[in-house]
């Protein structure tokens, strides 16, 4: 997980910094040729800023995403499921490390990023502000939220920034196990006893809205978005990602007798686009701005961990060390 399906935009500054036009042309030509940009290359200020925000939010999503699943390790049904869940949660934290390192190459230190998470300045994927009430919730997360993230991450791994692509390549490799174990648990419940089936259906009913929110609201067709796509920062629109996700996973849900709680969900075969009810974008906005069922809890746990690990980190710290941007 949890490649932040949706990257929170900041308000555009009235005047963007003016970039050297010759360097900009060389930079764009490099991207057009399919070459990667590396940390010490010249890059437009807006490219750097947008990438930091995107990779940082992705990293935070991995950290916070591990929390709802982490609470279920002790309650996972059976030894094999526990082992798989422990491995998955460890992977997610590993992914956060990979991503923080990639973001750091752009000049924002890990400490700054974590501070921004703790103060609520930086966002993370909105789905983790919802509770995992039953084992079936963990199953829905492990299958469908991970699936949504993979759609996003596979696209982004073909982007233009070298360190992010390299981190994503490794992440996608591990994700394939997350998706498979989620699918396996999903099928087990769907095809199990009536109680299991009902529990899964209930969880999917509650999660459908956050799942539809996952890839973010429909893109405004703005010059900004067009620029980011030209620079291969954003690889597809939110709607395209969501459509691809529905294409791949709606059949996998329906084929094992689970229903989707949206009577208007259907594919328009003429356009190839999925049609669905309005997934309540107002709720999405409220939750991402802090007013969700678990926002405070998630940050409190993170805050607690930073606070209580501080003495260990400080004891081992060498006061003479200087911040050095990772090399690659």
């Amino acid at each position: 997980m949890y490649g932040g399906g949706y990257i929170q935009e900041e308000k555009q500054e009235a005047t963007s910094p003016i970039d050297d036009s010759q360097k900009l042309a060389e930079f764009e030509a490099r991207i057009d040729r399919g070459e990667k940009i590396e940390p010490h290359d010249w890059m437009p200020a807006d490219y750097r800023k947008q990438l930091i925000r995107m990779i940082e939010q992705h990293a935070h999503s991995e950290v916070i995403g591990a929390l709802p699943e982490g609470t279920w390790i002790t309650r996972a049904p059976g030894f094999r499921r526990k082992l798989a869940l422990i491995a998955k949660v460890q992977d997610e934290i590993g992914h956060a490390h990979l991503l923080y390192s990639a973001a750091e190459t752009l000049g924002k230190s890990r400490e700054q990023m974590i501070n921004d998470l703790l103060t609520g300045k930086s966002k993370y994927s909105n789905v983790f502000n919802y509770p995992a009430k039953t084992w079936a919730d963990v199953t829905v997360i492990g299958f469908l939220i991970d699936a949504g993230a993979i759609v996003n991450q596979v696209a982004n791994s073909k982007g233009s920034y070298g360190p992010y692509c390299r981190a994503l390549e490794r992440i996608c490799y591990e994700e394939s196990f997350h998706l498979k174990q989620g699918h396996d648990a999903f099928i087990t419940l769907a095809t199990g006893t009536k109680a299991q089936h009902d529990m899964l259906q209930d969880a999917l009913n509650r999660w459908w809205k956050p799942i539809m929110h996952f890839h973010g609201p429909p893109d405004k067709i703005s010059e900004h978005t067009a620029k980011l796509m030209r620079w291969k920062v954003k690889m597809a629109t939110n709607d395209d990602m969501r459509n691809q996700f529905l294409d791949m996973y709606v059949p996998k849900i329906l084929e094992i007798g689970i229903t989707i709680p949206d009577p208007n969900l259907k594919k328009n075969e003429a356009t190839g686009q999925w049609e669905f009810s309005d997934p309540d974008w107002d709720e999405f906005k409220r939750v991402i701005n802090g007013d969700g069922p678990c926002n405070a809890e998630r940050l409190a746990v993170r805050q607690y961990v930073e606070e209580h690990g501080k003495w260990v980190r400080t004891a081992m710290m060498n006061p003479n060390q200087k911040v050095v941007i990772p090399f690659a």
Binding site: N115, Y304, T314
Partner: peptide, 22 residues
């Protein structure tokens, strides 16, 4: 399973110093 009990409410107070994550 959703809410951990009695987390000390230190929310918003921790600031991490430079190099604290080494």
């Amino acid at each position: 399973r959703i809410k951990r009990v009695d987390l000390e409410s230190t929310y918003g107070t921790t600031a991490i110093g430079e190099n604290e994550h080494w």
